[in-house]
Design a protein around this nucleic acid. Structure first.
Lengths: 341, 341
DNA sequence: CTGAAAGCGCTTACAG
DNA sequence: CTGAAAGCGCTTACAG
């Protein structure tokens, strides 16, 4: 079955290709009689316009691309739901590009960005320095890009973004731990080479400082954003000569690993060690014990980031590139208790 | 900064656009001297070919699309890794389309399929009946499609696929439960309206039958593939007048919900009730207790499905559309024990 | 309302 | 090795 083009339809309907095009794109400009003839020819041939040709001709694709670091990260479920809701309302389709930070090549992402395959881009990933370079090149081209969820390097501060106040949220988490009586509080952050969770670390440090609590050497460990990494980090924390009574994890994924490792060491949570997460992914309420964490309005972030992108696309450069801050909230469950006296 | 086209580069380099094109696509056909001139012009202008125009002209995009139901499903992490590995080896980019089953419209998926925006499609989702209709329309067009992971409706049996033997695997899981002494075994399956997990249910039923064990009314509950749904289903199972001593969940996501609900009811796992999952997602080894489950070679599935798709693209219709079966394995951890005597 | 025609940015035989 | 030219499938002023 050879691809049928607009010509074939025109021939069959006995009209010009211009008329066929009009029937599809602005039917009100066409006589009913003509429209019917054409529609008939369309069903007969099974014609459907070549999207590539359309996009090429129109100079727009009606497609927006969401770039995220990993499919399989439960946090993105709700963000995507929000993005999709907004996209539908605005008539866009969305497509997802996964770029493992360690896997992504300049060509890959550069190609997507530079070429006009997409009308706009939502970045749900904090980029490695390598990626950063690509992006700034791109931002020069003023392609519509909006950043969601994560703070990005300062060079990219001119990109609009929507996210929670990660510093304040982490501070609140730490303060909660402090308010429950903890003084020896350790932290597991993401990756040393990435900005991701950096603000959360900052918030933790700020809270400790403000409470005049020391952060001992070795209390801040790298969890690599993975369960395995967090388990390793937890082991180190547990073996610390001055072992923390509470561990603040920069995200729930790592908190899940931490929780497990503490228990595997024969310690009770929160009896011996309290554990706190961040994100409130769907698994947080079914861990054992259920995880106390910071909730992000993920779906709202998704919606807002999409609407923001639309504004950018429609109005060109936005004058106001202030980050849009959405509220987080402390979700108290059962993984935190006062330290043993 | 206006988009610069091939013309501008040609003008600057003092050559024809054909030569610029050749420099980019087959540099060996061009004098070194010319090539250098052109390359210079390219960097000076910051030119990069319009991918849309290229794809349109060439009639191929070098893009393959992966369709999956939810980006936040941890099972897909490894599958995508495999797909990506193979795609890189074959020179394809991959893009992901998320279609929540309840959200997807015929237009959405139909458009992607029919238009030439993509050279091929990998389906990682068992489609609802609605989706099925679209697909068979599509398969008539012989667009290259390969199905990964899940059995699909019989109408679509002509599509090539790669997956484990779900029936055999579920049977093995159930037999394991039986071998540990269980006779009252309940099951939580996915959704009544979907084929997803249907084979797993079949395997469970087959094993029970073979062992001459009855399946009481109410022992097979719908978990909707979600934690919340599984919790609800678990409650029903627990309240059953003849309560199962073991619950086989059709996937780990639901097993996590089940585990939590059993414990929330004050029962011990596996002391009072054994729980078994399916998939071996990364959280399975850190649940409490660690989950006994069926492991799928997710990354291998990803690789194979991609290679299979490539073959389809390259050779047109494949003569052999037998499903490709990959091995599963029983992963014994600690959520199953003999029933209380 | 409809058609003829130009043109989007590229690639690729075809000559030379 | 290089250029002139055709053409991919569509959309959209421009006439009529």
């Amino acid at each position: 079955m050879p691809e049928v083009s607009i010509k074939e339809v025109a021939r069959l309907a006995g009209v010009s290709i211009a008329t066929v095009s009009r029937c599809i794109n602005s039917p009100e400009k066409v006589t009913e009689r003509t429209r019917i003839k054409v529609e008939e020819a369309i069903v007969r041939t099974g014609y459907s316009p070549n999207t590539l040709a359309q996009s090429f001709r129109r100079g727009r694709t009606n497609l927006i691309m969401v770039v995220l670091p990993s499919v399989g990260d439960p946090f993105f479920t709700a963000v995507m739901r929000g993005i999709r809701t907004a996209a539908r309302a605005k008539g866009y389709s969305v497509v997802i590009e996964e770029t493992q930070l360690n896997t992504m090549t300049a060509d890959e992402i550069g190609a997507m960005l530079v070429s006009k395959q997409t009308d706009g881009i939502i970045l749900l990933a904090s980029m490695s320095p390598f990626g950063t370079e690509i992006l700034s090149a791109k931002s020069r081209r003023r392609l519509p890009i909006v950043v969601g969820c994560e703070t990005i390097s300062s060079e990219l501060a001119d990109l609009p973004s929507v996210h929670i106040d990660n510093v304040a949220a982490a501070k609140e988490a730490t303060n909660y731990l402090i308010s429950r009586g903890h003084e020896r509080i350790g932290m597991i952050y993401g990756q040393a080479t990435s900005l991701l969770t950096k603000d959360r670390e900052l918030g933790y440090r700020a809270a400790m400082k403000q409470a005049k609590l020391p952060i001992r050497k070795g209390w801040v460990a790298e969890g690599q954003l993975t369960i395995a990494g967090a388990r390793q980090a937890t082991r180190e924390l547990l073996n610390h000569s001055y072992c923390p009574t509470a561990i603040f994890c920069a995200n729930d994924e790592m908190a899940i690993g931490c929780l497990h490792e503490v228990k595997a060491a024969g310690l009770a949570v929160p009896g011996d060690v309290s554990v706190m997460g961040f994100d409130d992914i769907r698994y947080a309420e079914v861990t054992d014990p259920p995880l106390t964490t910071i909730g992000q309005p993920a779906e709202e972030i998704g919606e807002r980031v999409m609407y923001r992108l639309c504004r950018r696309i429609e109005e060109g450069q936005e004058s106001n590139n202030e980050p849009e801050i959405v509220p987080h909230k402390l979700v108290v469950r059962q993984s935190v208790a006062p330290p043993r006296a």
